[in-house]
Design a protein around this nucleic acid. Structure first.
Lengths: 355, 355
DNA sequence: TTGTAAGCGTTATCAG
DNA sequence: CTGATAACGCTTACAA
């Protein structure tokens, strides 16, 4: 019927005071204690299987050696590597990670953040923030970083990807294959990746002097296959006058390709498709996705470093928060191909046939 | 410079004692307090944005409304849906989830479990346990369930899949396609899935009177693509006299298919391959994997229910712990095919050519 | 180098 | 119905 051993238990056995035990056990203060006692205390602690009660320490210090990670949905394959990156950095420093999903719901996000704050997390990594975020300023004085995403106003440090460069690479690639009429399945502009990938597409479309046709741009309400399908349907209902589709992420691209197939259009033969993220296994899909590779694990890793910095330097918030932009890389695979040279584009012909 | 509001703050404002505030705020005890005070307290709490300090409560009650999930690697696609299942059940009940990876390392697992126990988790969901597990009995009196895996001795409730049935389905399927010489890339027998899938293979191989050839069985040291590749190399170095390979999971199968391709063998034309788990996107791979679908999300969901039961009924340890076996389903896709009818098998011919 | 004592925020027990 | 009080396990001035 023994409950967990406490410092008093150890103190009792060794014959010293709890505070001595506390000091002996803490690497930062154990030099204040005579080596013999430190040894003795360590020994007894080990024998009893002592584990400091985090609640006691947390109550006293207002720190919990716990950080929170908030993601829209852990089931989206881009997040696990990021989470792993955070965990690898933090667990080495003795931090535990509490995880929550929001499904992109703002109210839910507020709830889970509140629940984490109630648990005195020492920091928060948010992969769920909106571009115009109202939540972060309300968090107060616990360090926050955003990862994969950022906010319009630089209210917290962030780790993001070079979206602009990624889109430019994808577009340049398509153009180099002879594509001119390129559709864009864009992400939700309410979150930074959606916004900036769309903006980059428009910018480079202009710079590359590609034709402007508003029908070729469709906005998804989320980054998933289902939305990819819906947007592809919308696109095809508007026009079939395109030879390539640039998608704001891989899951959208997957949905798009499904719909193309359903309409009797082949990818890449009839329509080239690009994604973004290089999600795990994207190279094994049929067709293998041409996409922009981002460093998911690295992003989590860097976010954790940022968080540790902020936690350990205290609230020394001077100047703008850090903004780490990770480089990206185009990965050319099977979903893109030289445009069919002869007019009329196969797209149009096949679509007509499919109807 | 305001720190987080506490119950005393509320008590001060409302003009009652902290204990009254505590009672008023707790749904279980608020009926003891006059409705007006309950209302008033609730109001002030809301206005201040009060959040109970979990550390205080935890210190007092020895419960934290937190549970731990331990997985080998969150980056393995089978785990996120399971984790999501756990989270969905628990977060609704106000529990937070702390997550840790072990990479299958026993010492690491002991560490993270200890770290979670130090944080007074109310329960533990382990997807990282070994078949002969020494850790669980040492955990003491906090409820544990294993998920995806079980232990030889039923030391904790578990949620597992009907491995035996799954393997039987896969094998029956291959046999119905005319395959007789079927290799098995088995998982590590140190964990229950590896062991029971291998055992099921042997059992049904005998029952179906398939030829016994020890060269056709190779054991992986882990459930990943790299091990799949290594085992396929080993297999091919031993013999090429088989027409199908049953793999203990999808990631092994993916690795196996890579190696086959490298050797100039096509899947499924030359060799049929089956996986296990139906990991996310397995149907989009090339070739689309024929595999055994398991209910990953459901497993997490059930595990969480089991944990809640155990937590809320207290240590009512009577009889054997629950063992939930979830049904599985064969999903036939593109990686299996009728065996080439004419001898000699193409396998042998192509392999010779490849050398 | 070690002991003392206070207190972190909450809840449970006991009075009133 | 409400208040007083103690205690959970730990850290940290401060005192010795």
């Amino acid at each position: 019927m023994r409950s967990r051993p406490t410092m008093s238990d150890i103190a009792g056995i060794v014959g010293v005071h709890v505070s001595t035990v506390s000091r002996a056990l803490d690497p930062k203060t154990c030099h204040l204690i005579s080596p013999e006692i430190v040894a003795k205390v360590g020994e007894v602690a080990a024998k009893l299987g002592f584990r400091p009660n985090a609640a006691g320490a947390s109550l006293r210090t207002n720190r919990s050696r716990t950080i929170g990670i908030v993601v829209p949905d852990i089931t989206d394959p881009v997040f696990p590597p990021m989470i792993r990156g955070v965990e690898d950095v933090l667990s080495e420093r003795g931090y535990a990670v509490v995880l929550a999903n929001t499904d992109g719901d703002e109210a839910r996000e507020a709830e889970v953040v509140a629940s984490m704050l109630a648990r005195s997390v020492d920091g928060l990594a948010l992969a769920s923030s909106r571009y115009e975020d109202k939540l972060i300023p309300r968090i107060g004085d616990v360090p926050v970083v955003t990862v994969f995403r950022e906010t319009t106003k630089p209210v917290a440090p962030c780790v993001v990807f070079d979206e602009n460069c990624g889109i430019r690479h994808a577009l340049t690639h398509l153009v180099s294959l002879g594509h001119r009429r390129i559709a864009n399945i864009a992400g939700p502009r309410t979150i930074s990746t959606g916004y900036s990938r769309w903006e980059a597409f428009e910018r480079h479309r202009r710079e590359m002097k590609l034709p402007l046709d508003k029908r070729l741009v469709v906005f998804a309400d989320g980054f998933n296959e289902q939305e990819g399908e819906r947007c592809a349907e919308t696109l095809l209902a508007r026009t079939s006058d395109f030879t390539a589709i640039l998608c704001a992420n891989d899951r959208l691209a997957v949905g798009v390709i499904d719909v193309l197939k359903r309409y009797g259009l082949r990818c890449p033969d009839d329509v080239s498709v690009t994604g973004f993220n290089d999600m795990p296994y994207a190279g094994r899909f049929v067709p293998a996705l041409t996409t922009v590779r981002v460093q998911q694990y690295k992003a989590g890793w860097e976010a954790a470093r940022l968080l540790l910095d902020a936690i350990e330097t205290g609230p020394g918030r001077r100047g703008k928060p850090a903004r780490i932009v990770l480089p990206v890389e185009l990965v050319v695979r099977g979903s893109t191909q030289q445009v069919a040279s002869k007019a009329p584009p196969r797209t149009r012909r096949r679509l007509a046939a499919a109807r």
